[in-house]
Simulated assay, not measured.
Amino acid sequence: MRRTRSEPREDWAEKVEAHGLAFHRTAHPEHLPRPYWDESVHYVFEMDEVLALEAVVEELHEMCLQVVEHVVTTGRYNVLGIPDWVAPLIEESWRRRDPHLYGRFDLRYGGDGPAKLLEYNADTPTALVESAVVQWFWLQDAFPGDDQWNSIHERLVARWKEIGSGLPDDGPAHFAWTNGDETGEEVMTIAYMQQTAEEAGLSGIAIAMEDIGWHPERERFVDLHDDEIRTLCKLYPWEWIVSEPFGRSIPAAPTTWIEPIWKMVLSNKALLVLLWELFPGHPNLLPTYLNTPSDLTSYVQKPLLGREGASMRIVTPDGSEQRTQGDYGAEGFVFQEFCALPDFDGEHPVLGAWVVDDESAGLGIRETSGLITDDTSSFVPHRIPV
């Protein structure tokens, strides 16, 4: 793995916007001198390195599924702060094997040792459009003879075909974002999800979460035309859904949810605690504890349900401390051993390794000049020399 400089394409901003990254200006703080999409640099991997990382990702994913089985079998929902009334829904969903679509592992890796799991974004992962589409077109323009760890689009279409075979054939799937997203990132991401589903032969309708209604007589979720929502693919976290007034209606409705409710177990950072408990000493895990640093002298304190690096506290080996703003943490914290991100020319990459269904699917890289990957970080492409 190495970082190298490259000449940005002429009119690169218009090109990435044409490929769906319309939010690269709005989702990134305006005062930063560096753009969100930065193709003036990129990372280079060797094929054997990628194959090894793919194996790590699939092993981690399998371990995560074992954690779901463990939680369902033992009833340890309290570790994750999941409400009691939600636990039976998770168990039923898991036992039915409700289909899941995708996820993104965030890994610490610099080419000098085993990849370390930082967290798993299993319910509403973002950076999908830039990972699946935008960097692929960059590769075709800039390095057409090279390869890329990227089969995300093809795998999403294939997975939708599998999921679609089990969905009701008398109505379209609905694809939902929230009006609370002011950057447009959710709208473009869910629109891309709808596109992959439609390529797989499913019909789709876009809808805002705020426009979903509940029909008490029919006991069905409905759209603005009072049509039943039979399948809902959403970019709205499950922990928010179950806390909404309509959340209590979920058990009565036959709606198929993408992602399914059993993913609440995986979209919670207490997953990291359970992974370390079930697989202690695993080379791709960092020691992580619930609500206590235990014997850790340097650590990252993360809220169970935090997002975009908010409400975090970092204690480094030299004893210095750094905090980020945010309102998360009422549900508790995990304490994960501090593992400094690799340093490439003063920038620190985090590898976002994608899973579609149960298989490794691709890579997106975000860089930060600080200790935490947040909304000030930039996305950079990668390639594999052929």
Rank of each mutant, 00 (worst) to 15 (best):
F335R: 04
F246Q: 15
R108M: 14
I241H: 13
A330R: 10
L271E: 08
S243R: 14
E217V: 09
V86H: 09
E7R: 07
P385K: 09
E185Q: 12
D181P: 08
T324H: 13
S320R: 11
T368W: 07
V68K: 05
D345Y: 07
Q325Y: 12
E244P: 00
I82V: 08
F23T: 01
E59L: 05
K263F: 06
P283S: 10
G171R: 14
Y43K: 09
V134R: 05
A87D: 00
Q135K: 06
P83R: 04
D98I: 01
T256W: 06
G171H: 06
V315L: 10
Y299L: 05
T288A: 08
R5H: 12
G166N: 11
L89Y: 05
A115W: 10
D181F: 03
W262C: 06
L128F: 12
F175D: 03
D374E: 02
F338E: 03
T178V: 08
R95Q: 11
T231P: 00
P125H: 06
V57R: 03
S243P: 00
L89N: 03
T316N: 06
T288E: 13
V355C: 10
P33D: 12
I365W: 12
S320M: 08
Q194H: 14
V50K: 04
L304P: 00
P33E: 06
E331T: 04
D358C: 11
R95D: 01
T288Q: 11
R95W: 05
V41Q: 15
V273Q: 05
F246G: 01
T256C: 09
E186A: 06
W262T: 01
D357S: 15
R5A: 14
I384E: 11
T231G: 00
G103L: 10
R9N: 14
E347P: 01
L286C: 08
W262Y: 15
A310Y: 01
G332V: 04
T73S: 15
Q336D: 06
G352F: 03
D223H: 03
E367P: 01
L304R: 01
D227L: 12
Q325H: 13
G180R: 14
P251I: 07
P35S: 02
K269W: 09
V265C: 13
E54G: 11
F333Q: 03
Y192W: 15
H215Y: 07
K116Y: 15
M188Q: 13
L351G: 05
T196Y: 02
L53E: 03
I258L: 15
H153V: 04
V334M: 03
Y43H: 14
M63T: 03
I207K: 11
V300T: 05
D48G: 04
F23K: 02
L156P: 01
W12N: 06
G281N: 01
D295K: 08
N78D: 15
G326R: 06
F221C: 13
E367W: 03
V265P: 05
A27I: 02
L275T: 00
